[in-house]
Design a protein around this nucleic acid. Structure first.
Lengths: 184, 184
DNA sequence: CACATTCTATACCGATCGGTATAATAATTG
DNA sequence: CAATTATTATACCGATCGGTATAGAATGTG
């Protein structure tokens, strides 16, 4: 939908609060009642954007996180999925990154909270599964999930800024480095 | 100064745009002309906050980044400095994190830009110095600086959420893991 | 005391914010 | 064709936004 793309672009460029509803409508060639007919509120518009991009992504991630004995392969799959998603949905990913560490009380943060929570939970469960077969990881599941997620966003941010290319050797190296920290 | 702390707290809780100048003044017990007498604008207030916290921190960081042959010691010093700073200035650090990945065009991002740029530059120069003595790092200085910075913020975020404690073994482990990725 | 300067409060400004009442139009349905 | 429903535009709403003109109070200085 055109209006979703337009709003996503403006939000990612200027920030959610800095973009007026008026500006979105003018840019997309609509008027305000149209927007409010479909989305109900400015928050609803953001929610629709997030839902549109993050629901399919979370599903893909969910299947990639299915642990089947080979940690390294799973982590590489997640890495690929993440960087490809950031690369192909650059505008939305920038918006996501800008909201992800917003104040907890802010309305934007509350909007994306359910999605990021599922995200974090899935990753945590993955490392819990891994730790059942690698006992030396016990008790470190949370820190592993969090730091791996941080690594993903760091690399995705570099991809978005054109500082690195997505290559398998690079992903292999990043995962290998992380793995060493796990099992040592 | 009371007004700086008050504004810092409100900004970190609700976000810069969501807090009105009125609200800051009422909370701190001042009126608007007082605020505008000292800081000139809402932006100026944010700039004063950032300057107040980040200037001394950047100086500390600068001395910790002085490379003297032992990479691991330097990285551990930086790690300690970072986590202590986040721990002792939790409110400001939350504000900083929320702005750090904001849209480039947003005024808040532009305000902190000079500080974070110096930050990134110092870290990059450090790894450049290191690479003169460890040739296998050549060409990877940027990715090392960025991913190490990401690691710092990830751990600082966990400290702020009370998920981990700042202990020397933990810092040692984090640095050691990163180091392995460097030299392998 | 007189005077100059710094600081602070009352009251107000235009602009813009998110959101809506009303009604005309377009599209569906009988 | 008639009638109902879904969609869109004009014009407007109260509230709040960041910022300020004016003047009174406080403070320091000769």
């Amino acid at each position: 939908m055109l209006i979703l793309q337009t709003a996503c672009q403006l939000f990612s460029q200027q920030g959610f609060d800095a973009v007026g509803v008026q500006e979105i409508c003018e840019t997309a060639g609509f008027t305000k009642p149209t927007l409010y007919h479909y989305f109900g509120s400015k928050q609803g518009l953001l929610a629709a954007i997030v839902e549109h991009y993050l629901t399919p992504f979370n599903q893909q991630l969910n299947s990639a996180l299915h642990y089947q004995g080979d940690v390294q392969t799973s982590l590489r799959n997640i890495f690929n999925l993440y960087l490809d998603f950031a690369d192909h949905n650059a505008r939305f990913f920038r918006l996501w990154m800008s909201i992800r560490l917003s104040p907890i009380q802010s309305t934007t943060y509350q909007t994306i909270l359910p999605y990021t929570q599922k995200h974090q939970t899935d990753l945590l469960n993955f490392f819990r599964n891994v730790s059942t077969q690698h006992g030396n990881l016990l008790g470190r599941e949370l820190i592993l999930a969090t730091s791996f997620q941080g690594l993903l966003f760091t690399y995705a941010s570099m991809v978005l800024q054109g500082e690195i290319e997505i290559t398998q050797p690079r992903i292999h190296q990043a995962v290998h480095q992380f793995m060493h920290g796990i099992f040592s």
